[in-house]
Design a binder for these strands. Structure first.
Lengths: 111, 111
DNA sequence: CATATATTTCGATACATGTCGAACTATCAA
DNA sequence: TTGATAGTTCGACATGTATCGAAATATATG
């Protein structure tokens, strides 16, 4: 049986809900593959390699207010971090969440 | 940037949607931790170690029709497999999907 | 200050979801 | 064949979600 407690289940369900919208999943992947601090040459706002809200909406065919809404959801679920830098708001993924999620699916196999 | 194509994104979004409901996630974890063929001593319907629809609904406080609905969603998303055995319908998790999902979150870190 | 850029908030709308209960189908066993 | 057990299907209802556009806020710059 699963070892997860009720709160953890609800937390992960919430995380998966945040990733259940294709546009939101695209944004998350964009950040996860470009903007994870610790990943080689990926997070460097000075060098322009991180992503701001506007970057994430580009190529996505949705208006800024919708992008903002989606980013709020990702942030609420604890999937991304944000910090204002001048006019822009930089977003990135904490690698810890990626490891947690990978382990979530690996654990049942490891038993 | 992400290497996933549109169809793959939609597929994963669909998988996460299936896992975004706490009750459904509980059912999936139940199966993933007890009923994965290949996992030591876990999948043996004869020995009564697999789970049928009724087993999955027990302890969950929802009526059978709702359980059935949730299982259909998990199946539709490709997360579980089902097979009738007499009156009962046995469910289990294909370990391949667990590996795919683990890799989905590991990949960005490995780069 | 006035204007431009970046983002958020709000209200509206159309659509999807979770749950229930009642009625139905499938299988087994007497 | 009758009844019991296991699941599914259907319709209803309340709630949640994705998206838009308009208006508001924050920051930088002339």
């Amino acid at each position: 049986m699963s070892n997860y407690q009720n709160d953890q289940i609800k937390h992960f369900a919430d995380v998966f809900k945040a990733l259940s919208n294709p546009n939101r999943l695209r944004m998350f992947l964009h950040l996860a593959t470009c903007c994870v601090p610790g990943t080689v040459g990926s997070f460097d706002a000075e060098a322009g390699v991180s992503a701001c809200v506007g970057d994430l909406g580009r190529d996505l065919q949705i208006v800024p207010s919708t992008v903002s809404h989606h980013i709020k959801e990702l942030h609420r679920a604890g999937l991304i971090r944000m910090e204002r830098r001048g006019q822009k708001i930089e977003c990135w993924v904490d690698p810890v969440i990626l490891r947690d999620l990978a382990r979530f699916f690996e654990e049942p196999l490891a038993k």
